[in-house]
Design a protein around this nucleic acid. Structure first.
Length: 371
DNA sequence: AACTAGAGCAACCGCCAGAGG
DNA sequence: ACCTCTGGCGGTTGCTCTAGT
């Protein structure tokens, strides 16, 4: 009945591998190749569990592994892929030659998550905090800390609370978001084609890898499905996977009037440290002033249900191949409007948006978001 | 020089789907 | 058909190193 256990787990060695153990495993695999991992430790003369041997081989000993630090291009790949497919580290690693899922996962957890948070982007949703605020609006009915919005709040707290205005946690928000907006609007030496081309290539590769395996359901699609109209199918289609998600939800209808033509370049974005210099502060202020002066000509954030419906329909179209900056700008604009006045008016704005959204989409907003 | 906190990373844990007996 | 294991995966832990005080 059943198979015998692969090893006596109480008698196998655990912990850090020694050089001698590495040499034995390497010698065995180079001679016999990898087959049944439960047999490998016995045949190689190792007092280890087969699972441990497999991990050691795949994460460290494999000759094709790169042990150097990640390049900006790889960072960009990881971020784009994480945005598209979530924390499927093994899939992401397959698109990064020489990298293991453990490498990618560690790099994400130790570096990229923090980097994105510092830049005012929620590493779970890949949306700027300001957009999450405007998307979900209703601060008073926040779900638990474990879900995506909870992640946003934690990051928001980590990122902004220690900043300039100690008297209020949330008053620090506009600084970070404006920094983000500013970077988005003024990418350093922006190369319009780079990011979108790269992203398309990555997703195409991803499709190749997945064409005969699992049906992918990227988390961003779930988000959109829950925050936009229900017309999207529950699974990612080829069409959806072949394009980058946009940050368009609810704000996109008028973007053509104000959207800069540039697309977004992660690598430049990543090299830019927010909150780092007086120049950046000045840029933020300049940007803020510009946006405020032009905002009167722009539609309000929630300009009525008809507008919202159009925007929603458009927002759920994944046909765009580039990350759309326009939606972000529009969102950030709304945020700028809010942040330009007092704390009270910021909250009022958010609550007002929530009321209007609730009027426009009662069936969506009444339902609890369950991630 | 000693201590501490944080970062980085290797390894383990626990779960799941599929396969073997 | 059922039970158990394997292989693979994502999440987490804990050790080591380094920078700051």
């Amino acid at each position: 009945m059943g198979r015998p256990p692969c090893c006596d787990k109480s008698n196998v060695k655990r912990g850090i591998w020694t050089a001698a153990e590495d040499a034995k495993l390497l010698a065995y695999i180079s001679k016999h190749g990898v087959g049944n991992w439960t047999l490998v430790p016995k045949k190689a003369g190792l007092n280890r569990c087969g699972k441990s041997c497999r991990l050691r081989w795949t994460n460290y000993l494999r000759p094709d592994l790169i042990h150097d630090s990640f390049t900006p291009q790889e960072e960009e790949h990881i971020i784009n892929l994480h945005e598209a497919i979530g924390s499927r580290w093994s899939l992401i690693a397959k698109l990064l030659p020489g990298r293991t899922d453990n490498d990618v996962k560690n790099y994400w957890n130790t570096k990229l998550k923090k980097k994105l948070s510092k830049m005012g982007i929620d590493p779970v949703t890949h949306k700027p905090f300001s957009q999450i605020l405007s998307d979900y609006g209703n601060i008073s009915s926040l779900p638990s800390i474990d879900n995506q919005f909870g992640s946003f709040l934690k990051n928001l707290n980590n990122t902004f609370v220690p900043k300039s205005e100690p008297s209020s946690g949330i008053t620090g928000l506009p600084l970070g978001v404006n920094t983000y907006s500013n970077m988005m609007m003024n990418p350093i030496g922006s190369d319009n084609s780079t990011a979108s081309t790269l992203s398309l290539g990555i997703v195409a590769q991803f499709q190749e890898i997945n064409q005969d395996s699992v049906q992918v359901q990227p988390h961003f699609l779930n988000e959109v499905a829950s925050s936009c109209s229900s017309s999207s199918p529950p699974h990612a289609t080829d069409h959806q996977l072949s394009s980058q998600p946009t940050y368009l939800c609810q704000q996109s209808h008028h973007e053509a009037q104000i959207t800069p033509s540039s697309s977004f370049n992660w690598s430049e974005f990543l090299l830019h440290e927010p909150f780092s210099s007086a120049d950046e502060l000045k840029q933020e202020q300049d940007f803020h002033g510009t946006m405020m002066s032009s905002s009167s000509a722009l539609p309000t954030l929630a300009g009525g249900s008809e507008h919202n419906l159009k925007a929603t329909t458009q927002a759920c179209d994944f046909g765009s191949s580039a990350i759309n900056i326009g939606g972000q700008r529009n969102n950030n604009l709304a945020h700028d409007q809010a942040s330009s006045s007092s704390m009270t008016s910021f909250v009022d704005t958010i609550l007002g948006q929530d009321s209007e959204m609730q009027a426009a989409f009662p069936e969506l907003l009444d339902a609890s978001f369950d991630y």
